[in-house]
Write a protein that binds this DNA or RNA. Structure first.
Length: 548
DNA sequence: CCTGTAATAT
DNA sequence: AATATTACAG
């Protein structure tokens, strides 16, 4: 039974990655004469971009190991992630490189030129991969070593080892090599679809009936400080209102990154939720601010494209682990939904109210003290909030303790009924303790304090020497700030003498309690339910309900 | 299709 | 713990 090889080859896409023009031309002719679909690029970085775009479904890459940009191995890695067979070619054999290449997942390491017979049979590699992967996807694991678990580089090792296993042509036409979700047992996971209803009800029913769908995990990008800097650069270039993942991707011009990864990172950054992974340099720039060029134009798409709110180089002060109970139990405090739109609206000009703020749900351990965008934003836009902002943010972070506010401060006239209202009997509650303790420390300088409803426990604590006080101070994660305030703060919390309270007192000099209140939301019956609502009010009852 | 958000998987 | 992936919505 004759198998229409050419039909198979037609479906196979080969990318040549070589700056050697002659070789490329020759190979293109050869490949095309066998009906392969051919893409050529001259250097690895370009190839990586092509892969990143994901437009072409490359099956095989023929890569010059000596790509001028020295990225051939990175390309290899990326290709592995995409289940692409990579053949390294070289002008001169080098056993060391060959070994390295194979070790890192190259399918073959070949010396130029490639012979016609080899090209002719190239398709077999692809088919064999497909077959292998399908087997793996069905749960047949014999074909794979059990070693390597987390490493993204090993797909092809197995294939190399198992060379005796000559591919067999499957009768089924290979017209959907690409769409078939290839599955490797170690790297690919089965997933069931998760249903999520618009009613926000979470559908926990796991339907086994769902056909196993295999999904390939992307190459795991580490967002190094460097990479992040590029990211932020791109962001700054694009400017407020124009930061879309796709554009960022382009401006960054870093090969091997995909849009979704940028989007993911962007999401993190917008939420101020990103930390550099491991060691961070503890560089202390007194002012790492960029001027942010002040352009706050809105994009034509309205609310999209908002800049992330991190600085370019963020020293990551080690965050302390506080596993006190209340830390975990405190409700999420969604200051995010204190809608800046509303602030502006309340101000004067409702014309600015469309300015988009991403939902700033600030997670635990993130206290954004220094937000250049915020500052700029407020100052330039509405002149609201103003200079003392940072201090109050700090205070607020302490007050909320676990709430982790990312403060958007405006001159709203809200009053926090919650914080000081004795109706709320959360006195025995840990969270409440926190709150009150912070309160106490706040008031202690302005001599207003102790009026109504400081829980006994709190007072006791205080009288007992304010034991917890230092905890509260240390609580917020300062990792994102590198401004002056932060440093002072940081140095302060590192101090261990008995004067800490005094230091604290002198540093944080609060005279105007209104600033405190401005950070809090009025209680509202109006539960924000869907995002995207014009005016989301914070559901500040969170604190109460959580205390019960 | 691209974007944003939240949830969840790895 | 940091990223990736996904559902869902716009």
């Amino acid at each position: 039974m004759a198998v229409p090889y050419n039909e198979i080859r037609k479906e196979i896409r080969v990318m040549l990655v070589d700056h050697d023009k002659d070789f490329v031309n020759e190979m293109v002719d050869l490949l095309q004469s066998y009906n392969y679909k051919v893409t050529t690029v001259d250097i690895a970085s370009v190839a990586m971009s092509v892969l990143s775009k994901g437009k072409k479904n490359i099956d095989v890459m023929i890569i010059n190991v000596n790509s001028p940009d020295l990225l051939s191995f990175q390309l290899l890695a990326q290709g592995l992630g995409l289940n692409i067979i990579s053949l390294f070619v070289c002008d001169e054999h080098d056993a060391v490189i060959a070994k390295k290449a194979l070790n890192e997942g190259a399918y073959l390491y070949l010396k130029k030129p490639l012979h016609e017979e080899f090209i002719k049979n190239l398709w077999q590699f692809v088919l064999r991969e497909k077959i292998q992967n399908e087997k793996a996807g069905e749960g047949l694991e014999e074909n794979f070593d059990q070693k390597n678990v987390g490493d993204a580089d090993d797909i092809c090792n197995n294939n190399i080892v198992g060379e005796n296993n000559i591919p067999i042509i499957i009768e089924e036409q290979s017209n959907n090599i690409h769409e078939a979700d290839v599955v490797s047992n170690k790297k690919y996971k089965m997933r069931k679809k998760r249903g999520r209803k618009s009613t926000k009800e979470i559908n926990k029913i796991d339907s086994k009936s769902n056909a196993n769908k295999a999904v390939r995990r992307n190459v795991y990008i580490e967002w190094t400080v460097d990479l992040h800097a590029k990211f932020m650069d791109a962001v700054h270039q694009l400017g407020e209102g124009k930061c879309f993942p796709l554009q960022i991707l382009e401006v960054m011009n870093v090969p091997g990154i995909e849009r979704l990864q940028v989007a993911s990172h962007l999401q993190k950054c917008r939420n101020n939720n990103w930390r550099v992974s491991k060691e961070q340099k503890s560089i202390h720039h007194p002012s790492g601010q960029r001027s942010t060029s002040g352009s706050q134009q809105r994009s034509s798409r309205g609310k999209f494209g908002t800049m992330p709110r991190l600085q370019t180089n963020v020293p990551n002060l080690q965050q302390q682990k506080y596993h006190r109970d209340q830390t975990q139990r405190v409700p999420k405090f969604l200051l995010s939904q204190l809608n800046t739109d509303e602030i502006f609206t309340r101000g004067e000009s409702s014309t600015q109210q469309q300015i988009y703020r991403p939902q700033l749900q600030v997670q635990p351990h993130n206290l954004c003290i220094d937000n250049p965008f915020n500052n700029t934003f407020l100052l330039t836009q509405n002149n609201v909030g103003g200079g003392k902002q940072q201090q109050h943010e700090i205070l607020f972070g302490m007050l909320g303790s676990q709430g982790q506010q990312e403060s958007i401060i405006g001159s709203t006239s809200y009053r926090p009924e919650l914080a000081f209202n004795s109706e709320y009997q959360h006195t025995q509650n840990d969270y409440n303790l926190d709150l009150n303790a912070a309160q106490v420390s706040t008031y202690s300088h302005s001599a207003i304090m102790f009026g109504t409803n400081i829980g006994n426990a709190t007072i006791n604590e205080l009288e007992a020497g304010n034991v917890n006080f230092q905890h509260y101070i240390g609580e917020p994660n300062m990792s994102d700030s590198n401004n002056i305030v932060t440093e002072s703060y940081a140095s302060f919390i590192e101090g261990s003498d008995s004067n800490e309270k005094e230091n604290y007192a002198s540093y944080f000099n609060f005279n105007n309690m209104d600033y405190l209140f401005q950070n809090l939301e009025p209680p509202s019956d109006n539960l924000p339910y869907e995002h995207g609502r014009e005016f989301d009010h914070v559901y500040s009852d969170d604190q109460v309900s959580a205390s019960i």
